[in-house]
Amino acid sequence: MSARDDIIAAVREGLKRGQGGALPRRAPAEIRAEAAALLAGLDEIRPSLVTPDPVEAFIQKCANPALGVTLDRVAGWAALPQAVTGYLDRHELPHRLAVSGDPRLSALGPGIETHAPCAPDEAAAISIASWGVAETGSVVIHSAPDQPILNAMLPRHWLVVVEAAKILPFLDDYATFASLRPRNAVLITGSSGTTDIEGYFVRGAHGPGFVHVLLIG
């Protein structure tokens, strides 16, 4: 027998033993229904939002110093270049960014030089997140031709744009979109960090040490 058959047979054997000698054969639909019932009444098993309005809750979460995130509210896409240069200037960075193929980023404005791909030691890169999550202050990116995962991982400063209309209240609200099944779905919450040396918290372990959220709208 193949390892696969052996393992499945051993699991069934175990289930039989554990359930008094008979393996209750249940239809997949029944199993699915039981699984779904385990998620009934989500509000009883998840924290409530810091404030009922998801966008406001998201902003408040991002203000938590533990996350290591800064956030700017940007009036609209047209105001994005100005917000970006503002951030780069505050950090005394050149007006130079790694971007993806997303047309909304390649034309950030005359004063900003954009390029691809992101270099291993890139100073700053910018991505557009598909969603934000108010519960945790996370942003979500799905890998795609115009969404390189490495742009979110390699730079020292990662700028991420998210539209206020795309802020979801809870992690569970994002889970619905998992059915899109991208190769990579990454929920990013704050900047990279480690506590591996005597528990000291140090930012910028492997991923970005600085994360700046540009909240549009």
Partner: peptide
């Protein structure tokens, strides 16, 4: 509340994927 990175990996690179 969550880790900084929570990633779901679903199969290899798709046609046209950036990485």
């Amino acid at each position: 509340e969550v880790t900084q990175y929570t990633t779901f990996h679903c199969g290899p690179k798709r046609v046209g994927d950036a990485d």
